[in-house]
Amino acid sequence: MSDDLSRLPPASADDIRALVKRAGLDLPEELLQQFVAVWPQYEAMVRRIPRGRGYDEEPAHTFRPARW
């Protein structure tokens, strides 16, 4: 399986509307249309994130109990 998500097709307007609904948001139509126009640039950004890191590459800001 490829780690490259940029090969995926872009979400359609209907996809975006469904995702917004699934997130529990009930936006007026005008605001929803604005967001449908904006989301593709964010989708492309997220899909550019490199994947497939080793298990030792943990997230930044891991929990540090010694800081308590």
């Binding site: 967001f35 904006v38 997220v46 490199p50 997230p59």
Partner: peptide, 21 residues
């Protein structure tokens, strides 16, 4: 702000791991 509602948990974690690198 709205894009944050659609970015998946695994994408956020991938970005945090990338941040470390």
């Amino acid at each position: 702000v709205l894009p944050g509602a659609l970015i998946r948990g695994e994408d956020y974690l991938a970005a945090l791991r990338w941040r470390g690198a």
